[in-house]
Design a protein around this nucleic acid. Structure first.
Lengths: 198, 198
DNA sequence: CAATTAACTGAACATCCGTTCAGATGAAAA
DNA sequence: TTTTCATCTGAACGGATGTTCAGTTAATTG
């Protein structure tokens, strides 16, 4: 039996990515087998290799896709105004981008060590580019006297950890709405850099 | 060949734990085999089962040991004084405990999903106990008017993510000394809850 | 209609997995 | 010295692993 009905390269391909994402996020890259992914898609293991070179590429493509999407979305947001306004906007952007992508984000922060060295270097570079955009905001705020931050690099890494940690506990339909979470974290973030809130 | 020289239950046992910790932290629980651990110890795979019931127990014991040590150490520190003083002390305690234990902490935050359900429940309970101690400080600070925090639970989870994130980038001998990192994070944490710094 | 081709199956490959266990080994006890 | 025992080896167990590939099927093309 093969090709049950219709031409399905355009359907099975995304299904493979979706299944890999969900399973990797749930059990971890190393703990998931190609046969499990195939079963989730409804196909035999061998068929996966029509859509990915190997298991490693499956992970790498997911992570790279997430990072480029993230950076592109941030650049499209084009944050402007005072450093405080930009920091507030960055915080909201980060949360809005990450909340609906729990699995992907979780993967991006957990499975870096399962990338080959070259693949890791690429993802690390993208991540650095994202961090730098926040660091720029902090530098500007310090320069203008709006922020009190002893070390912008440390603050950048700290704030990103703070924000990304949301995905460790957030569950849709939980105690707080997305808007409430956003407001909470904006307060935390803006206060943390010593800014006076509007 | 067996028992090369001397009686070694008291030596091999800790070596197994050390090797497991290092390898789990580096490659992930699922990606490490019992044979790799055995090779690191300098023993055959079968010998490991003199020191652990199975691979799962190896992970669980590492995580439980870390969490109980953490909570015991915190309780021994007996933070007192104003909410701000206690928050400052908590921050310094957390960093001092975690910085020399990069591997263990990394494990504790990465490998929870590889625990069986019962084992996970136990670790989650310990973690909750630790979080609650920080949340108490925040509640007291809000009650006394020292802190401005919209939601103490969110702030607790956020601050712990902020602090624990250090282990993602800290390397001994890096740009900053441990004391500088401590000072940096104390500023961030105390400002984040809206406290006026001394 | 026949020919082509994209999509998939199912079996096979060598290798690894966690775990068990009879037996070997050397230190400690008698 | 002989016995006992903790410690470890080395082989084996059934099963899972990522990946390849010849062959099969059904949709598309001519």
């Amino acid at each position: 039996m093969a090709r049950k009905q219709g031409s399905h390269a355009g359907i099975t391909g995304p299904k493979v990515q979706d299944a890999a994402l969900r399973l990797f996020a749930q059990h971890g890259y190393a703990a998931v087998s190609m046969r499990q992914i195939a079963a989730e898609v409804g196909v035999q293991a061998g068929a996966l290799y029509n859509y990915t070179a190997d298991k490693q590429s499956l992970l790498f493509d997911l992570l790279r896709g997430n990072m480029t999407e993230l950076i592109d979305a941030l650049d499209a947001a084009a944050l402007t105004g005072t450093p405080l306004a930009r920091l507030d906007a960055f915080t909201r952007f980060h949360i809005r981008f990450h909340l609906p992508r729990r699995d992907t984000v979780f993967l991006s922060y957990m499975e870096l060590r399962n990338l080959t060295d070259e693949n890791f270097a690429q993802i690390a570079e993208l991540r650095r580019a994202y961090e730098d955009r926040l660091e720029d905001i902090l530098h500007d705020g310090v320069a203008s006297g709006d922020f009190t931050v002893p070390d912008c690099r440390v603050a950048t890494l700290g704030l990103i950890a703070l924000l990304t940690g949301i995905t460790n506990w957030y569950r849709p339909g939980g105690r707080l709405t997305a808007a409430e979470i956003e407001a909470n974290y904006c307060t935390l973030v803006c206060q943390s850099v010593g800014a006076r809130l509007a």
